Simulated scan of single mutants.
Amino acid sequence: MATIANAKVTTLPEKWGGEIQSGQHTFLTDKPESFQGLDRGPAPYDFICSGLISCTMITLRMYAEHKGLDLGEFSVEADCKANKEGQEWIERRLSFKTNLDEALQEKVLNVCQKTPVTKTMLRSVEIKTTII
């Protein structure tokens, strides 16, 4: 079994604040002021979106390099959505500074469905929790 990622969060004195350590990186997590937080860092669902879009960007750049394509500058954005019926989904949007022809757009959309984080999110993920 291989560990592909690791992170640890430690509580801060603020109501919802936490300090996350992942590898050599340290960043904050919090809730927005509308949830009585101080909004000093991304909230948990923001991190889900961030993981998805960063993986999408990296995978598309790797694909373009491998295929000798020039995608130019682009951005990826995602929103976590939920409705009253309890359904949840993510809407992901790509925006390219250069125009992609229809065939390349189709390839890009196909690659997006195959990014590692997308594939993880699309299948059920078992979460095992223990107290150590």
Rank of each mutant, 00 (worst) to 15 (best):
C55E: 05
C80G: 09
C55P: 09
G41T: 12
L104I: 00
N110W: 11
A78Y: 02
E19Q: 13
K128H: 10
A82W: 10
N83S: 11
I58V: 10
M62V: 07
E106P: 03
K81M: 05
S124I: 03
A2L: 06
N99M: 02
E88S: 14
L71G: 00
T26R: 08
F35V: 12
M62C: 09
Q113S: 14
I4C: 00
E65A: 03
Y63L: 06
I90L: 14
K114P: 04
A43R: 15
T26Q: 08
V108I: 11
R40W: 03
F27I: 03
G41F: 14
N99F: 00
E126A: 15
I58K: 02
L94Y: 06
T115V: 10
N110A: 13
S75L: 03
G41P: 15
F74D: 01
F27E: 00
E91R: 10
L109V: 01
E85H: 03
T11A: 12
M121F: 09
N6P: 00
Y45S: 07
V76Q: 00
S50Q: 07
M121L: 12
E91Q: 13
F74E: 01
K97F: 00
N110Q: 13
S54Q: 04
T10Y: 10
F35L: 15
E85N: 03
T29C: 09
T26N: 05
I132R: 07
